[in-house]
Nucleic acid binder design. Structure first.
Lengths: 197, 197
DNA sequence: CCTACCGATCGGTAGG
DNA sequence: CCTACCGATCGGTAGG
Protein backbone atom coordinates (compact mmCIF):
# COMPACT_ATOMS: atom_id res chain seq x y z
CA UNK A 1 0.00 0.00 0.00
CA UNK A 2 2.65 2.47 1.04
CA UNK A 3 4.69 1.14 -1.82
CA UNK A 4 1.96 1.97 -4.33
CA UNK A 5 1.65 5.51 -3.04
CA UNK A 6 5.38 6.05 -3.18
CA UNK A 7 5.54 4.63 -6.66
CA UNK A 8 2.82 6.96 -7.91
CA UNK A 9 4.41 9.98 -6.28
CA UNK A 10 7.72 9.19 -7.87
CA UNK A 11 6.12 8.74 -11.30
CA UNK A 12 4.60 12.18 -11.07
CA UNK A 13 7.99 13.50 -9.95
CA UNK A 14 9.54 11.84 -12.99
CA UNK A 15 7.02 13.50 -15.29
CA UNK A 16 7.65 16.93 -13.76
CA UNK A 17 11.39 16.46 -14.03
CA UNK A 18 11.34 15.34 -17.66
CA UNK A 19 8.88 18.11 -18.48
CA UNK A 20 11.17 20.74 -16.95
CA UNK A 21 14.06 19.47 -19.09
CA UNK A 22 11.97 19.54 -22.26
CA UNK A 23 10.34 22.92 -21.55
CA UNK A 24 13.82 24.32 -20.99
CA UNK A 25 15.17 22.85 -24.20
CA UNK A 26 12.30 23.50 -26.61
CA UNK A 27 9.98 25.86 -24.77
CA UNK A 28 6.58 25.14 -23.23
CA UNK A 29 4.51 25.73 -26.36
CA UNK A 30 6.79 23.67 -28.59
CA UNK A 31 6.78 20.64 -26.29
CA UNK A 32 3.89 18.28 -27.00
CA UNK A 33 2.36 15.89 -24.51
CA UNK A 34 3.25 13.10 -26.95
CA UNK A 35 6.92 14.13 -26.87
CA UNK A 36 6.81 14.20 -23.10
CA UNK A 37 5.06 10.83 -22.86
CA UNK A 38 7.69 9.24 -25.08
CA UNK A 39 10.49 10.61 -22.90
CA UNK A 40 8.75 9.30 -19.80
CA UNK A 41 8.16 5.95 -21.49
CA UNK A 42 4.35 5.75 -21.57
CA UNK A 43 1.52 6.67 -23.95
CA UNK A 44 0.30 10.27 -24.05
CA UNK A 45 -3.10 9.40 -22.60
CA UNK A 46 -1.45 7.79 -19.59
CA UNK A 47 0.12 11.06 -18.52
CA UNK A 48 -3.33 12.16 -17.44
CA UNK A 49 -3.44 9.58 -14.67
CA UNK A 50 -0.71 11.60 -12.97
CA UNK A 51 -1.39 15.18 -13.98
CA UNK A 52 -4.55 17.05 -14.90
CA UNK A 53 -3.25 19.10 -17.79
CA UNK A 54 -0.16 20.42 -19.55
CA UNK A 55 -0.57 23.72 -17.75
CA UNK A 56 -0.68 22.04 -14.36
CA UNK A 57 2.87 20.83 -14.99
CA UNK A 58 4.04 24.36 -15.64
CA UNK A 59 2.24 25.59 -12.53
CA UNK A 60 3.96 22.97 -10.38
CA UNK A 61 7.38 23.96 -11.72
CA UNK A 62 6.90 27.72 -11.44
CA UNK A 63 5.40 27.77 -7.97
CA UNK A 64 7.92 25.32 -6.54
CA UNK A 65 10.68 27.65 -7.64
CA UNK A 66 8.85 30.76 -6.45
CA UNK A 67 8.28 29.24 -3.01
CA UNK A 68 11.93 28.38 -2.64
CA UNK A 69 13.08 31.90 -3.53
CA UNK A 70 10.44 33.52 -1.33
CA UNK A 71 11.46 31.41 1.66
CA UNK A 72 15.08 32.41 1.20
CA UNK A 73 14.15 36.08 0.86
CA UNK A 74 12.24 35.98 4.16
CA UNK A 75 15.22 34.51 5.95
CA UNK A 76 17.56 37.10 4.49
CA UNK A 77 15.26 40.06 5.14
CA UNK A 78 14.91 39.32 8.82
CA UNK A 79 18.62 38.86 9.53
CA UNK A 80 20.76 41.55 11.13
CA UNK A 81 23.56 41.55 8.60
CA UNK A 82 24.87 44.49 6.64
CA UNK A 83 22.98 45.26 3.42
CA UNK A 84 25.92 44.52 1.16
CA UNK A 85 26.27 41.09 2.77
CA UNK A 86 22.54 40.44 2.40
CA UNK A 87 22.83 41.18 -1.27
CA UNK A 88 25.85 38.94 -1.62
CA UNK A 89 23.92 36.14 0.07
CA UNK A 90 20.90 36.61 -2.16
CA UNK A 91 23.20 36.64 -5.16
CA UNK A 92 24.90 33.42 -4.06
CA UNK A 93 21.53 31.77 -3.46
CA UNK A 94 20.42 32.67 -6.98
CA UNK A 95 23.62 31.34 -8.47
CA UNK A 96 23.42 28.07 -6.57
CA UNK A 97 19.78 27.55 -7.44
CA UNK A 98 20.61 28.15 -11.06
CA UNK A 99 23.42 25.60 -10.90
CA UNK A 100 21.75 22.89 -8.82
CA UNK A 101 18.15 23.25 -9.90
CA UNK A 102 18.87 24.43 -13.39
CA UNK A 103 15.98 23.19 -15.53
CA UNK A 104 13.21 24.24 -13.12
CA UNK A 105 14.64 27.68 -12.35
CA UNK A 106 15.20 28.37 -16.02
CA UNK A 107 11.67 27.29 -16.97
CA UNK A 108 10.12 29.29 -14.16
CA UNK A 109 12.05 32.32 -15.37
CA UNK A 110 11.35 32.08 -19.10
CA UNK A 111 8.11 30.18 -19.58
CA UNK A 112 5.82 31.58 -16.89
CA UNK A 113 4.05 33.65 -19.56
CA UNK A 114 2.24 30.48 -20.58
CA UNK A 115 0.58 30.07 -17.19
CA UNK A 116 -3.22 30.32 -17.22
CA UNK A 117 -5.24 32.59 -14.95
CA UNK A 118 -5.48 32.88 -12.04
CA UNK A 119 -1.97 31.44 -11.74
CA UNK A 120 -0.51 33.95 -14.14
CA UNK A 121 -1.56 36.96 -12.08
CA UNK A 122 -0.56 35.25 -8.86
CA UNK A 123 2.91 34.45 -10.19
CA UNK A 124 3.45 37.96 -11.55
CA UNK A 125 2.42 39.44 -8.21
CA UNK A 126 4.93 37.23 -6.38
CA UNK A 127 7.58 38.27 -8.84
CA UNK A 128 6.92 41.97 -8.36
CA UNK A 129 6.88 41.49 -4.60
CA UNK A 130 10.20 39.66 -4.62
CA UNK A 131 11.87 42.39 -6.65
CA UNK A 132 10.44 45.08 -4.43
CA UNK A 133 11.94 43.41 -1.35
CA UNK A 134 15.26 43.01 -3.13
CA UNK A 135 15.26 46.68 -4.14
CA UNK A 136 14.47 47.83 -0.64
CA UNK A 137 17.47 45.95 0.74
CA UNK A 138 19.60 47.79 -1.78
CA UNK A 139 18.04 51.09 -0.79
CA UNK A 140 18.83 50.43 2.86
CA UNK A 141 22.43 49.83 1.82
CA UNK A 142 22.53 53.14 -0.02
CA UNK A 143 21.17 54.99 3.00
CA UNK A 144 23.77 53.33 5.22
CA UNK A 145 26.50 54.29 2.76
CA UNK A 146 27.48 50.67 2.04
CA UNK A 147 26.26 50.80 -1.53
CA UNK A 148 26.88 53.24 -4.36
CA UNK A 149 24.12 55.74 -5.10
CA UNK A 150 22.42 53.86 -7.91
CA UNK A 151 18.83 53.29 -8.98
CA UNK A 152 17.83 50.28 -6.86
CA UNK A 153 15.27 48.74 -9.25
CA UNK A 154 17.85 48.89 -12.04
CA UNK A 155 20.38 47.12 -9.85
CA UNK A 156 17.86 44.37 -9.05
CA UNK A 157 17.12 43.96 -12.71
CA UNK A 158 20.81 43.61 -13.53
CA UNK A 159 21.50 41.14 -10.76
CA UNK A 160 18.55 38.88 -11.55
CA UNK A 161 19.29 38.77 -15.23
CA UNK A 162 23.04 38.44 -14.86
CA UNK A 163 22.49 35.26 -12.89
CA UNK A 164 20.32 33.79 -15.61
CA UNK A 165 23.45 33.87 -17.76
CA UNK A 166 24.50 30.69 -16.03
CA UNK A 167 22.32 29.04 -18.62
CA UNK A 168 25.20 29.41 -21.09
CA UNK A 169 27.77 28.27 -18.60
CA UNK A 170 25.72 25.19 -17.83
CA UNK A 171 25.97 23.76 -21.31
CA UNK A 172 29.42 24.92 -22.34
CA UNK A 173 32.31 22.50 -22.56
CA UNK A 174 35.54 24.00 -21.30
CA UNK A 175 34.20 25.65 -18.19
CA UNK A 176 35.35 26.72 -14.78
CA UNK A 177 34.03 25.03 -11.65
CA UNK A 178 30.75 25.98 -10.01
CA UNK A 179 32.62 27.54 -7.10
CA UNK A 180 34.84 29.62 -9.35
CA UNK A 181 31.83 30.72 -11.34
CA UNK A 182 30.06 31.83 -8.18
CA UNK A 183 33.04 33.78 -6.89
CA UNK A 184 33.64 35.44 -10.23
CA UNK A 185 30.03 36.53 -10.52
CA UNK A 186 29.95 37.89 -7.00
CA UNK A 187 33.19 39.80 -7.52
CA UNK A 188 32.03 41.35 -10.78
CA UNK A 189 28.64 42.37 -9.43
CA UNK A 190 29.88 43.66 -6.08
CA UNK A 191 33.12 45.33 -7.14
CA UNK A 192 32.73 45.76 -10.90
CA UNK A 193 35.02 45.13 -13.82
CA UNK A 194 37.41 48.02 -13.42
CA UNK A 195 40.58 47.56 -11.48
CA UNK A 196 41.51 50.38 -9.15
CA UNK A 197 45.26 50.62 -9.07
CA UNK B 1 5.77 51.00 -60.77
CA UNK B 2 8.21 52.26 -58.22
CA UNK B 3 5.23 52.95 -56.03
CA UNK B 4 4.12 49.32 -56.19
CA UNK B 5 7.55 48.09 -55.22
CA UNK B 6 7.75 50.47 -52.32
CA UNK B 7 4.28 49.48 -51.17
CA UNK B 8 5.14 45.79 -51.21
CA UNK B 9 8.38 46.34 -49.38
CA UNK B 10 6.66 48.28 -46.66
CA UNK B 11 3.97 45.63 -46.25
CA UNK B 12 6.64 43.03 -45.65
CA UNK B 13 8.28 45.39 -43.19
CA UNK B 14 4.94 45.74 -41.42
CA UNK B 15 4.58 41.97 -41.17
CA UNK B 16 8.08 41.59 -39.75
CA UNK B 17 7.49 44.35 -37.25
CA UNK B 18 4.15 43.00 -36.03
CA UNK B 19 5.61 39.50 -35.91
CA UNK B 20 8.50 40.67 -33.74
CA UNK B 21 6.04 42.25 -31.31
CA UNK B 22 3.95 39.09 -31.13
CA UNK B 23 6.90 36.70 -30.90
CA UNK B 24 8.21 38.80 -28.03
CA UNK B 25 4.90 38.83 -26.23
CA UNK B 26 3.75 35.24 -26.68
CA UNK B 27 6.75 33.38 -28.01
CA UNK B 28 7.39 32.08 -31.54
CA UNK B 29 5.69 28.73 -31.08
CA UNK B 30 2.61 30.19 -29.42
CA UNK B 31 2.06 32.78 -32.17
CA UNK B 32 -0.07 31.46 -35.01
CA UNK B 33 -0.04 32.77 -38.56
CA UNK B 34 -3.75 33.48 -38.14
CA UNK B 35 -3.04 35.69 -35.09
CA UNK B 36 -0.36 37.49 -37.04
CA UNK B 37 -2.57 37.95 -40.09
CA UNK B 38 -5.32 39.45 -37.97
CA UNK B 39 -2.89 41.93 -36.41
CA UNK B 40 -1.62 42.90 -39.84
CA UNK B 41 -5.18 43.18 -41.12
CA UNK B 42 -5.28 40.50 -43.83
CA UNK B 43 -6.21 36.82 -44.14
CA UNK B 44 -3.69 34.21 -43.09
CA UNK B 45 -3.24 32.91 -46.63
CA UNK B 46 -2.34 36.38 -47.82
CA UNK B 47 0.74 36.51 -45.60
CA UNK B 48 2.36 34.06 -47.99
CA UNK B 49 2.42 36.63 -50.75
CA UNK B 50 5.01 38.50 -48.70
CA UNK B 51 6.89 35.82 -46.85
CA UNK B 52 7.67 32.20 -47.61
CA UNK B 53 7.08 30.67 -44.19
CA UNK B 54 6.73 31.37 -40.49
CA UNK B 55 10.35 30.42 -40.01
CA UNK B 56 11.51 32.87 -42.65
CA UNK B 57 10.13 35.68 -40.48
CA UNK B 58 12.19 34.51 -37.52
CA UNK B 59 15.27 34.24 -39.73
CA UNK B 60 14.85 37.80 -40.94
CA UNK B 61 14.55 39.10 -37.38
CA UNK B 62 17.46 37.11 -35.93
CA UNK B 63 19.96 37.81 -38.69
CA UNK B 64 19.12 41.50 -38.92
CA UNK B 65 19.96 41.81 -35.25
CA UNK B 66 23.06 39.64 -35.52
CA UNK B 67 24.39 41.71 -38.43
CA UNK B 68 23.93 44.91 -36.50
CA UNK B 69 25.83 43.62 -33.47
CA UNK B 70 28.57 42.10 -35.58
CA UNK B 71 29.11 45.36 -37.45
CA UNK B 72 29.43 47.25 -34.17
CA UNK B 73 31.85 44.67 -32.80
CA UNK B 74 34.12 45.03 -35.82
CA UNK B 75 34.24 48.78 -35.40
CA UNK B 76 35.04 48.49 -31.71
CA UNK B 77 37.64 45.79 -32.13
CA UNK B 78 39.70 47.76 -34.60
CA UNK B 79 39.77 50.99 -32.60
CA UNK B 80 42.76 52.08 -30.55
CA UNK B 81 40.92 52.78 -27.31
CA UNK B 82 41.64 51.33 -23.89
CA UNK B 83 39.99 47.99 -23.21
CA UNK B 84 37.83 49.27 -20.41
CA UNK B 85 36.47 51.97 -22.73
CA UNK B 86 35.85 49.43 -25.48
CA UNK B 87 33.80 47.39 -23.04
CA UNK B 88 31.88 50.43 -21.91
CA UNK B 89 31.10 51.26 -25.54
CA UNK B 90 29.96 47.71 -26.29
CA UNK B 91 27.83 47.80 -23.16
CA UNK B 92 26.26 51.11 -24.17
CA UNK B 93 25.56 49.79 -27.66
CA UNK B 94 23.79 46.76 -26.22
CA UNK B 95 21.71 48.91 -23.92
CA UNK B 96 20.70 51.30 -26.67
CA UNK B 97 19.82 48.49 -29.05
CA UNK B 98 17.69 46.95 -26.34
CA UNK B 99 15.92 50.25 -25.77
CA UNK B 100 15.46 51.40 -29.35
CA UNK B 101 15.06 48.10 -31.13
CA UNK B 102 13.45 46.27 -28.27
CA UNK B 103 11.15 43.70 -29.87
CA UNK B 104 13.63 42.46 -32.45
CA UNK B 105 16.62 42.23 -30.10
CA UNK B 106 14.54 40.42 -27.51
CA UNK B 107 13.18 37.91 -30.04
CA UNK B 108 16.60 37.30 -31.52
CA UNK B 109 17.90 36.62 -28.01
CA UNK B 110 15.14 34.34 -26.73
CA UNK B 111 13.52 32.67 -29.73
CA UNK B 112 16.46 31.74 -31.95
CA UNK B 113 16.13 28.13 -30.80
CA UNK B 114 13.18 27.80 -33.15
CA UNK B 115 15.29 28.54 -36.23
CA UNK B 116 15.54 25.67 -38.72
CA UNK B 117 18.79 24.32 -40.10
CA UNK B 118 21.03 25.51 -41.61
CA UNK B 119 20.14 28.86 -40.05
CA UNK B 120 20.21 27.50 -36.54
CA UNK B 121 23.83 26.37 -36.76
CA UNK B 122 24.83 29.54 -38.55
CA UNK B 123 23.25 31.72 -35.87
CA UNK B 124 24.80 29.75 -33.03
CA UNK B 125 28.21 30.03 -34.65
CA UNK B 126 27.86 33.81 -34.97
CA UNK B 127 26.81 33.97 -31.35
CA UNK B 128 29.82 31.99 -30.16
CA UNK B 129 32.07 34.10 -32.31
CA UNK B 130 30.70 37.36 -30.95
CA UNK B 131 31.19 36.21 -27.38
CA UNK B 132 34.69 35.06 -28.11
CA UNK B 133 35.62 38.48 -29.47
CA UNK B 134 34.02 40.16 -26.46
CA UNK B 135 35.94 37.90 -24.08
CA UNK B 136 39.22 38.57 -25.80
CA UNK B 137 38.76 42.33 -25.37
CA UNK B 138 38.27 41.69 -21.65
CA UNK B 139 41.36 39.51 -21.57
CA UNK B 140 43.41 42.26 -23.17
CA UNK B 141 42.17 44.60 -20.45
CA UNK B 142 43.27 42.16 -17.77
CA UNK B 143 46.73 41.87 -19.29
CA UNK B 144 47.01 45.65 -19.44
CA UNK B 145 45.91 45.90 -15.81
CA UNK B 146 42.79 47.93 -16.60
CA UNK B 147 40.45 45.17 -15.59
CA UNK B 148 40.20 43.00 -12.49
CA UNK B 149 41.55 39.47 -12.77
CA UNK B 150 38.28 37.70 -13.52
CA UNK B 151 37.22 34.85 -15.76
CA UNK B 152 36.57 36.65 -19.06
CA UNK B 153 33.87 34.31 -20.44
CA UNK B 154 31.96 34.65 -17.17
CA UNK B 155 32.15 38.43 -17.41
CA UNK B 156 30.79 38.34 -20.97
CA UNK B 157 27.97 36.14 -19.84
CA UNK B 158 27.04 38.52 -17.05
CA UNK B 159 27.20 41.61 -19.24
CA UNK B 160 25.10 40.15 -22.05
CA UNK B 161 22.43 38.85 -19.73
CA UNK B 162 22.37 41.89 -17.47
CA UNK B 163 21.49 44.00 -20.48
CA UNK B 164 18.58 41.74 -21.36
CA UNK B 165 17.07 42.83 -18.06
CA UNK B 166 15.97 45.98 -19.83
CA UNK B 167 13.01 43.87 -20.86
CA UNK B 168 11.51 44.49 -17.43
CA UNK B 169 12.37 48.18 -17.48
CA UNK B 170 10.74 48.56 -20.87
CA UNK B 171 7.28 47.65 -19.69
CA UNK B 172 7.31 49.06 -16.15
CA UNK B 173 5.36 52.21 -15.34
CA UNK B 174 7.25 54.40 -12.91
CA UNK B 175 10.62 54.25 -14.56
CA UNK B 176 13.73 56.31 -14.94
CA UNK B 177 14.72 57.77 -18.29
CA UNK B 178 16.62 55.80 -20.91
CA UNK B 179 19.72 57.88 -20.29
CA UNK B 180 19.61 57.34 -16.54
CA UNK B 181 19.07 53.63 -17.07
CA UNK B 182 22.11 53.46 -19.33
CA UNK B 183 24.34 55.35 -16.90
CA UNK B 184 23.19 53.27 -13.95
CA UNK B 185 23.85 50.02 -15.77
CA UNK B 186 27.28 51.13 -16.90
CA UNK B 187 28.22 52.27 -13.42
CA UNK B 188 27.09 49.04 -11.78
CA UNK B 189 28.84 46.81 -14.29
CA UNK B 190 32.06 48.81 -14.48
CA UNK B 191 32.46 49.80 -10.83
CA UNK B 192 30.15 47.41 -8.96
CA UNK B 193 27.61 47.85 -6.22
CA UNK B 194 29.91 48.40 -3.27
CA UNK B 195 30.86 51.88 -2.28
CA UNK B 196 34.49 52.39 -1.32
CA UNK B 197 34.64 55.00 1.38
C1' DC C 1 -5.44 39.58 -51.44
C1' DC C 2 -9.42 36.19 -50.76
C1' DT C 3 -12.20 31.64 -50.43
C1' DA C 4 -11.79 27.11 -49.80
C1' DC C 5 -9.37 23.61 -48.27
C1' DC C 6 -5.38 20.07 -47.14
C1' DG C 7 -2.96 16.70 -44.02
C1' DA C 8 -0.77 16.83 -39.64
C1' DT C 9 -0.76 17.48 -35.04
C1' DC C 10 -2.45 19.37 -30.89
C1' DG C 11 -4.44 18.72 -25.74
C1' DG C 12 -7.48 15.92 -23.80
C1' DT C 13 -11.42 12.15 -22.92
C1' DA C 14 -14.05 7.60 -22.85
C1' DG C 15 -13.93 3.25 -21.61
C1' DG C 16 -11.78 -0.59 -20.25
C1' DC D 1 -1.62 2.16 -18.31
C1' DC D 2 -3.51 1.32 -23.14
C1' DT D 3 -6.50 1.64 -27.56
C1' DA D 4 -9.31 4.42 -29.93
C1' DC D 5 -10.82 8.60 -30.79
C1' DC D 6 -12.65 13.72 -30.34
C1' DG D 7 -12.92 18.63 -31.97
C1' DA D 8 -9.81 22.36 -32.58
C1' DT D 9 -6.14 24.41 -34.57
C1' DC D 10 -1.86 24.44 -36.88
C1' DG D 11 1.29 25.93 -41.21
C1' DG D 12 0.68 26.06 -45.71
C1' DT D 13 -1.32 25.49 -50.84
C1' DA D 14 -4.50 25.79 -55.02
C1' DG D 15 -6.76 28.57 -57.78
C1' DG D 16 -8.64 32.62 -58.91
Amino acid sequence: MAKTVRKRASKKELILQKAAAMFREKGFAATSMRDLAETVGIEAASLYNHIRSKNEILEAICFDVANSFNANMEGTESSNEKSILKIEKLLRFHIRQMIENYEEVYVSDREWKHLDEPYLSNFQAQRRNYRKKFASIIEQGIVKNEIRNIDAPTAVLIILHAVSGIESWHRSRARISAGELEDNMVMIMIDGLRKHS
